[in-house]
Amino acid sequence: MQTGIPLFPENASTFATPVDTLYVALVLVSIVFMVLIAGLVIGFAIRYRTRPGSEGAKQIHGATSLELLWTAVPLGIVMVIFVWGTKVWFQISRPPAQAEQYYVTGKQWMWKIQHPTGQREINMLHVPINQPIQLRMISEDVIHSFYIPAFRVKRDVLPGRYSTMWFEATKAGTYHLFCAEYCGTKHSQMIGSVIVMEPADYERWLSGAVAGESPRDQGEKLFAALRCDTCHTGLQGARGPDFKGLWGQKVQLSDGSSVTFDEDYVRESILIPTAKTVVGFQQLMPTYAGQVGEDQILSLIAYLKSLSDPAQGGAKP
């Protein structure tokens, strides 16, 4: 039990200062209003207290100018706060293009993490300093929420749908990782650590950890093992669409609508192939629900993505 009361969590990401600044501003505004209201209430309660010889109540019906004043001033202040809060929000919710993708799967009651280079860890997240990192997250059961107070970021992790969050750590150290959405008996033990390292230390850690294959390579193997390649041959007249250069493109569907070829669409098509069929193809694909886990789907996604990335030997969209 330590003595002294800390007021701020560690400042360890690029978001911490903007969020703390907004917080301090809000606290100052609140203090001004509290002092004003408490001062008036206490002042009036004393000055106008009933007592022998008090002058009695002076009946005042209201004063339009005053009422306009205390409608307009709070309105102005909350609008400034709204704009400020929204600006901070946009900063936190828009990842830069060069962010590295990490994968997170939540389940009762642990966090499973996979690095772009294939290392896996549980309830720990090692990241390099000064590098934007994006987490692509999904839950295998109920809703969880990935929360790193030192970074001032949090995002719910949902079943059946990907969510993402990003951050850039600015200070080496070990920080709390919490599940912030109540998820059952051991919710308060669904915790871990985020370890921010200098790039060299991170490289050393990566080479020391059980490396395994990168998600992309695992995905490529799975693609063959699950026989995806018998239909998605990539050749003319194949029974399934060719994925080269398709990532991020709009795809025409057989019902006339279109959809972006992205993580959510790929995941849905693996689990419910009949939901959105690409125009010109028949509904031949069987469902893989129950045969592939969320981790494997993430690997397949990494592989399909690489097919549209020239740097990884894929085709230009």
Binding site: L26, V78, I81, W89, P149, R152, V153, K154, R155
Partner: peptide, 12 residues
């Protein structure tokens, strides 16, 4: 109500 602030303290 300020969105950027809520992210940090939501569910705390």
């Amino acid at each position: 109500g300020a969105m950027g602030f809520d992210i940090h303290v939501h569910d705390t």
